[in-house]
């Protein structure tokens, strides 16, 4: 099947109200309207969602493995951003 001419789209589904849209896969379609329709048929056959996003795969700008150090390492040395950095006195059971 030559779907070469068809655009590749990434599909995101919000499983229920209050949750984030989650990446579920991709599909081929001619335009975003059709991508949305196919996403409904392909990825929500069991009512897995209440909302769908489709995005042209080519429009996604992804960070590269090579950039990983410069992107993410700087936050490694900031443990004080995490609550677990601050031990609580035993007497205080939750905060």
């Amino acid at each position: 099947m030559t779907t070469e001419k068809l655009e590749l789209f990434e599909v995101f589904v919000r499983p229920k109200r209050g949750l984030d849209h989650k990446h579920v896969g991709s599909l081929h379609a001619e335009d975003k309207e059709q991508a949305l329709e196919y996403a409904r048929d392909v990825y929500t056959r069991r009512t897995e969602g209440i909302s769908i996003w489709v995005v042209k795969s080519g429009d996604i700008c992804a960070s590269q493995e090579d950039d990983r150090e410069s992107f993410f390492d700087p936050s490694d040395d900031k443990p004080y951003r995490h609550a677990t950095y601050y031990p609580l006195p035993k007497e205080i059971s939750n905060m």
Binding site: M1, T3, L6, A29, Y38, D41, V42, R45
Partner: peptide
């Protein structure tokens, strides 16, 4: 169908 996505849609 003419391609896989359409097979699924027609099935629905």
């Amino acid at each position: 169908g003419p391609f896989l996505e359409e097979d699924i849609a027609l099935g629905n």
